[in-house]
Write a protein that binds this DNA or RNA. Sequence first.
RNA 1: GCCCGGGUGGCGAAACUGGCAGACGCAGCGGACUUAAAAUCCGCUUCCCGGCAACGGGAGUGCGGGUUCAAGUCCCGCCCCGGGCACCA
Length: 814
Amino acid sequence: MPEQPYDHRAIEPKWQSLWDGDPGLYHAPNDDARPKYYVVEMLPYPSGKLHMGHVRNYSIGDTLARYMWMRGFNVLHPMGWDAFGLPAENAALKSGRDPRDWTVSNIATMKGQLKRLGFSYDWSREISSCEPEYYRWNQWFFLRLYEKGLAYRRQSRVNWCPECATVLANEQVVNGCCWRHETTPVVQREIEQWFFKITEFADELVDGLDRLDTGWPERVRAMQANWIGRSDGAEVEFKHDETGEPIRVFTTRVDTIFGASCVILAPEHPLAAGMIRSEDGPRLKAMVDDQARKAPGEIEKDGFDTGHFAVNPYSGGKVPVWIANFVLATYGTGAIMAVPAHDERDFEFCTKYGLPIRAVVRPVEGTTPDPVVDVFTDYGVLEHSGSFTGLTSQVAREKMAKYAEFMGFGKAKITYRLRDWGVSRQRYWGTPIPMVHCVVCGVVPVPDSDLPVLLPNRVAITGTGRSPLENVAEFMNVKCPKCGADARRESDTMDTFVDSSWYFYRYADPRNSGAPFDPAIVRHWFPMNQYIGGITHAILHLLYSRFWTKFMRDMGLVDHDEPAANLFTQGMVLGTDGTAMSKSKGNVIDPDEMIDRYGADTCRLFTLFAAPPDKDMEWNESSVEGQHRFLGRAFRFVTRNIGAQREGVEENGRQAQRKLHQTIQKITADFDNRWHFNTSIAAMMELSNELTALEAGIPGELLPEILENFIKLLAPFAPYTAQELWVAAGGEGAVFRQPWPQFDEALAAQDEIQVPVQVNGKLRGRIAVSIGLPKDTLEQAARADEKIRPHLDGKQVVKVVVVPDKLVNFVVKS
RNA sequence: GCCCGGGUGGCGAAACUGGCAGACGCAGCGGACUUAAAAUCCGCUUCCCGGCAACGGGAGUGCGGGUUCAAGUCCCGCCCCGGGCACCA
């Protein structure tokens, strides 16, 4: 066959239909003979168009899915969409369009782009979290959580910008001010909000991380453990010296309690307001307000004495009760004991206000530091600690906690940094929370039979920060499901992280109208084998979805503890300014231009080749030419050799086969172990280069096998080009229907190798020898080499290290 | 402060279990083909010294030590960059 020019414009449109509308490309529903493999990439959100960051992410997943299929697995690889609330609503505000129309049209755009890139998702499983059916099951889950006491409503503080009249997420508060109004201080508001009790699972969420050690990156596990922040300590009561009212204090160092100088309450502590002197009222109020705009780590420690005293339960001594800005109301009990001799922060505070400093722990060895100057924070041996004196800190912590429990003033206690998950959003665009407020009955859940509660259409987005739903009478006014009286609907909608917590389960059974999914189907596919996504979701999404799985397991819906056996976090694609791509920064690179110019295959190859997939990648298009050239070379090589008849040279044929089988071996190993697609592609290039160099001498009868395997190896990386070549070479159907090539170890074996020879660890020459030579033969060959001899002549060889097939090293003395 | 990563040519990177540092590609330089350009193909390309040259010698993986016949890789002590958490009791 004469050589064909490589023209991606002629090739790629031709094969789009091959995977468009072929839901079974990977997943063969009735094929239980194959082992199963379930790969999911994290949800794209339809905030416009795909950018190169997405392309890289999906290229990794798609390449893997194709390989797994060719390896004989039954691969489920679906695609879905997240209807992010804020972007949709903001865009609607700007354009005047309904968020639903906006979202639907953006999904269509992105879907088109993904198809153009040749990503062969199982589109029949396409779901969107803005579908009514998806709302239904979100709400159904909400009700199940509510029944178990895992969904509850309470007053909660939120950040509020008076200028925009809206609730701000923590990330939107910059230096205590609104991110849009840099001079407007954010205030705190108390509003009723819904929460999920993720803290109920805190222990399991931490402990479960250990069992994910082989499948999840260390980085993600560390971040989650950090975020949950489990700390082991004790809770004890200091009683008010007159009223006997207990002040509960959490500490990890109960062994230092004999050194407590005071008890300090957070400004928001329930007892604080009642304890202060009347003239301190404004001071306390200022401190409470100030908590909002606290820039962490910057704020000056500030506090004042209430004039009240509390009793140290161990020593019986009286200590003053203070109020200070650095004590967090939301951590532990909202009150601490300050032990300045053994804690840096307490030391700073007590020194500032002249509170006494008393050392009660000394180092096991060495000199005791002067407590007025030096803080000793390590474990040691207790002193001045009553009957606990002389114990080590470790032993004392345990004994003292037990003593507290025996005496009834405290106990050992574990505290977490993790807070319950606030799921209320005062926005239009999200799943309505299925609750009704009745004056008579209070909060009443919507019965299952009335689900889904749908959003009204064409709601005016006000941008005031209050839910726009409150203005929609026909949505808000309902009858109480319990007593039938007039009632109002809950106007909060759910955080979109609720949607993403279980979407990958819905993929398995996306059209089920009687349940979120059929447990039998989920048992078949789960836990998913491979989850792929950005590090940005390391904490929130990946923690929430783990929580969801555990909750569903407790409900009996699923039979596993963790949703994903393996997690892969691909590196970010950094924009032209070296920071992560984001629309608001305007540094987004979209793939369309590159696809037009070089084609989808080049574009995919480029993102995979530039760096290993777990590494961040700074944007630099210069090497894209190289990928395009490679595809062109490979294409022309194959087309001009299809059906070629020639005599050839045996040695050339042997070499070509050897390189082919070595490449199969190398790429298979890359896929199975570490997904370094950059080295796989480099191996393909080497193979292509070598075949071209040997070309004229490759015997014609070897060509069919070589070409066929070459095409199959290329298929996961460059599907269009491979498909075109597959058919040109006489193949039928999709190249992915073909099994992945097997390597033959005998053919891959090198019969002659170059073994480096060193003298005193310095490379002095190489010898060409046949493989598998015994040590002494190898040594003789090395000694005889003319480049080595001069280095050994007249010198004493002290030692010879011979590693068969690897190296010879002579250690000499002159 | 604590916890994770990372530091290798002009650039992206490779070297997977200690065994030839720089595979593969980009950029660059030289050449072939061409009236010319594009495309394509071939050669060189870590740095320094010597040589017309083939080649020879030396240095070299953030810095300083160490282990080893042999260290980018292992150990000890630092420096720098990125990320996460952070008055968390």
